[in-house]
Design a protein around this nucleic acid. Structure first.
Length: 228
DNA sequence: GCGACAG
DNA sequence: ATCTTGTCGC
């Protein structure tokens, strides 16, 4: 776990999203060293839900929905489109989806305190999923909230809202949580992105899901990025 | 070698 | 992710 200064030194390569698969995977391993999984207790007022849609084979459209916490009213939105930098390769999703997200983020008037990502964070083959990649680049606390499993072993959580089960990595460490956000509905997969711990990540995802399986901000971003 | 594989 | 309406279940 290196410090921010080293991160800045690697900024040049850190901003590359069109690398060959092998190089992208190597970069993930290096950048993963900068990820912090501790929450500093900062106050949260704005949560950004981020999602990316592909209106055509080679166009990526990102949408950000900024919601107030804990009320969840959407206070701002932003969208941006860019040509795809890479094809979809399991484990390298961030290299395909982050470019337009960075554009949409720049256009935001407010500065979100927390990012909710449609994908995994530490629960990833190299411990550096999209939520971690984005959180590190934006130096903002981030949470991975995926709709399906990618990496690690887990058991089924109980059937009621709020029940969880651990996701265990190759080393035996807890790398994520399977969380039921609605009674008798498929769970979501929560993991640390950056600058937060798993317990708080689960707490925020649950707090953002008063009614539906998908957290409000993510649901809204998905709707904004989708077909028009 | 075989199966798994975020969006 | 995308191609796509109605329909079954809580």
């Amino acid at each position: 776990m290196k410090n921010r200064r080293h991160g800045l030194e690697e900024a040049g390569i850190a901003g590359r999203f069109d690398l060959p698969p092998g190089e992208a995977a190597e970069l993930q391993k290096r950048l993963g060293e900068f990820v912090r999984s501790e929450w500093d207790g900062r106050g949260v007022r704005l949560i950004a839900g981020i999602d990316v849609h592909f209106p055509s084979k080679d166009i990526a459209r990102a949408a950000i929905a900024v919601a107030a916490w804990p009320g969840l009213d959407v206070v701002e939105t932003s969208c941006a489109e860019l040509p795809c930098s890479m094809p979809y390769i399991p484990g390298l999703l961030s290299f395909r989806e982050i470019p337009p997200v960075l554009e949409a983020w720049k256009a935001l008037a407010g500065r979100p305190d927390l990012i909710l990502c449609d994908g995994h964070g530490l629960a990833h083959p190299r411990g550096f999923g999209m939520a971690s990649h984005l959180g590190l680049l934006l130096d903002t606390p981030s949470i991975g909230c995926a709709k399906s499993h990618l990496f690690g072993s887990f058991t089924e959580p109980g059937p009621l809202k709020g029940e969880t089960a651990k996701v265990i990595g190759k080393s035996g460490a807890v790398i994520g949580a399977v969380l039921r956000t609605r009674d008798r509905t498929r769970p979501v997969y929560v993991s640390v992105g950056h600058l937060i711990d798993l317990e708080n990540a689960v707490r925020f995802v649950l707090g953002c899901s008063p009614r539906y399986r998908i957290p409000g901000p993510l649901r809204e971003a998905h709707r904004l990025a989708g077909r028009r």
